[in-house]
Simulated scan of single mutants.
Amino acid sequence: MPRYFSQDHPDRLEIDAPVLDARPGAVLLAQSPFFPGGGGQLADRGAIQWSGGVIPVERLEPDARGFWHILAAPVTIDGSVRVQVEPRFRRLMCELHTLAHVLNSLVYRDFGGALLTGAQLSADGTFRVDFDLPGADPDRLRALDGPINDVIRQDLAIRSFSMQWVAAEAEPGLFRSKSVSPPPQEDGSVRIVEIAGLDRQACGGTHLSSTGQARPVRILKVDNKGRQNRRIRVGFAD
């Protein structure tokens, strides 16, 4: 799959782009700053500005040539457009995704390499992460907000880089999901997100540039979801 613009240019939330194709209510662009969603992260919110005005984007649909931007009304767009990502919502998704990685790293380290079975970030400022953790002590899981907040206070740097898929497969812990993993790029590489001194794992989403940019959290709930699955729901402390 091609790399997302948001992966290489996470701070570019507005770009000008020519229209490749259009139909009522949708426009195809070769390049877009929108993160289309995936891996539990919600798609970016935002709008397209063109000669006829400004219209919200409801969702993205992949195409071999780029992404169809599905619009909030059946207008037909031509010429060049300006694509605008909503900064506050992108920032929230970056924050929640970063915190989910911190939680994932602590569970993987302290609970015998437990694998991820699901994750979902929410627009209300909470997220949940599911793990293959049969027999885990729920009190230990509820106490994880302390270590998460310690990582926030340490303000660890976060970066992303690419490595060849074969090399990534050979390094234990880079692929954390029990059933799925990020698809390889067209050049056979995979994107790795690293929290300095704490964690490295394959991921295609957006993140903060350091853990200290996140707000403190608390564990809201720990649930049993089946015989082996344990769900940890997290929200901000304030």
Rank of each mutant, 00 (worst) to 15 (best):
S6E: 06
S6R: 00
D8C: 01
L13G: 10
P18Y: 05
L20H: 07
D21W: 08
R23P: 10
P24D: 13
G25N: 05
G25F: 01
L28D: 04
A30L: 01
Q31T: 13
F35H: 15
G37K: 10
G40C: 02
G40H: 03
G52E: 12
P56H: 09
V57P: 03
L60N: 11
G66W: 06
H69T: 01
I70M: 11
A72T: 05
S80P: 05
P87I: 02
R88A: 14
R91K: 10
L92H: 08
L92C: 08
C94H: 09
L99N: 14
A100E: 15
L103M: 09
S105L: 00
L106M: 01
V107C: 04
V107A: 01
Y108N: 09
G112F: 01
G113S: 08
A119R: 11
T126H: 03
P134V: 05
P134R: 05
G135R: 07
D137T: 05
D139G: 04
L141C: 00
D150H: 13
S160Y: 08
F161S: 10
M163R: 14
E169V: 11
E169N: 14
A170V: 13
E171T: 15
S179I: 12
S179W: 12
S181I: 12
P183T: 07
G188S: 08
S189R: 12
S189D: 13
V190I: 09
V190D: 02
R200C: 15
R200Y: 09
R200H: 14
Q201H: 15
C203W: 05
S210D: 11
S210N: 14
Q213G: 14
Q213L: 14
P216Q: 07
I219V: 14
V222S: 05
D223K: 15
A237N: 10
